[in-house]
Nucleic acid binder design. Structure first.
Lengths: 116, 116
DNA sequence: ACATTATTTTAGTATGTACTAAATTACTTG
DNA sequence: CAAGTAATTTAGTACATACTAAAATAATGT
């Protein structure tokens, strides 16, 4: 359990886990999705996730494919999913409110955008 | 979500959360249950847990009582419970195996104890 | 064999954080 | 009010860790 929480404490690793949640990606794919970080860093994060049992690794030629071990995560996995979904629908709600406001005023929003 | 995982990443905070899981305890009680750490450290941990929404704080006189916010934890809370239960039953299994071994040999165990 | 591609490993650095001791705030009681 | 108790806050330190650059490992293609 300790390893699981330690692994999920880092935002970068949560992002990686989410990235491989419903598709298998190679280490390079994951690097490409995180261009602001070095390949070495990604590789290190993957090792932490793997040791925590959060992702599975499959070797194929010179590629290493990673995928979330959703089955073994059980309730924790489902909690993650609902949390991610909630965050998404919050964004959706904001966007819709924005849309409605723009329509009402018949002008676009001014001032600071609501979402950074 | 970030705050939740960051809070649960520290073993000491997981222990405190577990301590207030099914009873409300004062900061002093929690300190007394963790005699190897200073009161200041406990207080800091409690603040982290509270900011993450994991525990609720109630003031009464000069006491501060803390309790886990189990309701709001939903599936995550249930996952924690099952994990803690699993760890417990592992210990139980070990103890029973030990007991059986002792009975079979009609002597107590020798050598290193199985659980540190 | 050599160059190329994919990934991991290592060494070093910089920031984050768990901790302590001491100062501070606030309630309670003689 | 003064003394004692409960808890928090602050400043400082030691250790953990996220990161980078570069070297190492390994499979593929020419």
């Amino acid at each position: 359990m300790a390893a699981v929480f330690e692994a999920l404490a880092a935002p970068r690793r949560r992002e990686i886990l989410r990235l491989v949640w419903d598709r298998e990606l190679s280490a390079g794919d994951i690097r490409r999705a995180n261009p602001d970080v070095s390949f070495g860093a990604v590789s290190q994060h993957l090792r932490v996730l793997e040791k925590a049992g959060l992702v599975a690794r499959r070797e194929e030629g010179r590629f290493r494919y990673y995928a979330a071990r959703r089955r073994q995560l059980g309730l924790l996995g489902r909690w993650l999913e609902t949390t991610w979904d909630a965050a998404l629908s919050d964004l959706k709600t904001l966007a819709e409110a924005d849309e409605a406001a723009a329509k009402t005023s018949r002008h676009g929003r001014r001032g600071k955008p609501r979402v950074a």
